[in-house]
Amino acid sequence: MRPVADMPLETAANITILFADIDDTLTHEGRLPGCAYQALEDLMKAGIAVAPITGRPAGWCDMIARMWPVTGVVGENGAFYFSYDEAARKMRRSFAIPAETRAKDRERLVSVRERILREVPGAAVSADQLYREADLAIDFCEDVPALPRGDIDRIKQIFEEEGGVAKVSSIHVNGWFGEYDKLTMSKRFAREILDVDLDAGKDRIVFVGDSPNDAPMFGFFPNACGVANVLHFRGQMEAEPAYVTQKEGGFGFVEVAERLLAARRARAGAA
């Protein structure tokens, strides 16, 4: 992982889309700094399409898609994307799995939930679970005392033993049934909303993240960036970002935004 300041100016100036995780990437210690929100505004005004790619629930994502300066949002680790059409005053929602299947899967997750809570003392269902459409989020440090790494791994293992998929974020273990992740839904979002083929255009896209559930995105995008707290997971991820910031969380995200915007200004000044 190289410093984000080492991203070549020409590479940075050519970025047209920025995807970013939310928790501990846009936020810092559980809050969204004003400078990070302003960075989202500045990127959109500069013509860079912005979309959060998060494990957070559908209820949150509806609000984010409506009210934040973003083109859309991918939520619940790829279960769906939401994109608000301001001109039509209409939310576009696209899910990886049909509603009937999601309902059945939620019933299956009840027994998984009970097993996890029984076998991993100290774990808890996340406070945002009521607002979810497709997955089960188990809190290991957001609103409960932090669990040891072995317990976090055990939660993930239980999901997998029950036939599910599980991803570890900086605060939750998210589990679901179905073959999707952040990257698969990001590709659909880009194709259907941005009219962009991610496979062909990934050199012009930056993803910013912080934790192991971002590994598919880190591995796919050659110019992916990690905020400094990603270093806590060094050696624990299947893929690491190409670049890393000096600061953590939302303050690190601002570093990435400033690099992209400064490169655009430099190119405009040289024209």
Rank of each mutant, 00 (worst) to 15 (best):
M1D: 00
D6S: 07
D6R: 05
P8A: 02
A13Y: 05
T16H: 02
I17Y: 06
I17K: 10
A20M: 08
D21C: 03
I22G: 02
D23P: 02
L26R: 05
T27G: 01
H28E: 09
R31N: 12
R31I: 15
P33E: 00
C35V: 14
C35Y: 10
C35F: 09
Y37C: 05
Q38M: 14
L40C: 00
M44Q: 14
V50H: 01
A51I: 12
P57D: 13
A58Q: 10
A58E: 15
W60N: 04
C61L: 08
I64C: 03
R66T: 04
M67L: 11
G72D: 12
G78P: 02
A79V: 04
F80R: 10
F80V: 13
Y81P: 01
F82L: 14
S83Y: 13
E86R: 15
R93P: 03
S94N: 07
I97K: 00
I97S: 00
P98C: 11
A99N: 07
R106I: 13
E107Q: 10
V110Y: 09
E114T: 03
R118T: 04
P121V: 10
S126A: 05
A127R: 13
A127N: 11
A127C: 11
L130V: 12
L130G: 06
E133Q: 03
D135C: 01
D139L: 13
F140A: 00
F140M: 02
C141V: 15
E142M: 10
P145W: 07
P148F: 01
R149M: 14
G150K: 12
D151P: 04
D153G: 06
R154G: 11
I155M: 07
K156W: 12
I158Q: 04
F159Y: 14
E162D: 08
G163P: 04
G163A: 09
V165A: 14
V165W: 14
V168W: 11
V173A: 06
G175H: 08
W176V: 00
Y180L: 09
D181L: 11
K182F: 06
K182G: 06
M185W: 05
S186C: 07
S186I: 05
L194D: 00
L198I: 08
A200I: 13
G201M: 13
D203N: 06
D203T: 10
R204M: 04
S211P: 01
N213Q: 05
F218V: 07
F218Y: 12
G219C: 12
P222F: 08
N223G: 05
G226E: 08
V227Y: 00
V230F: 07
L231P: 06
F233A: 12
F233K: 07
F233M: 04
G235W: 15
E238K: 13
A242D: 02
T245K: 05
K247Y: 14
E248G: 04
F251N: 03
G252W: 05
V254S: 05
V254P: 07
E255M: 00
A257M: 15
R259T: 11
L260M: 14
L261V: 09
A262H: 12
A263H: 08
R264T: 08
G269E: 10
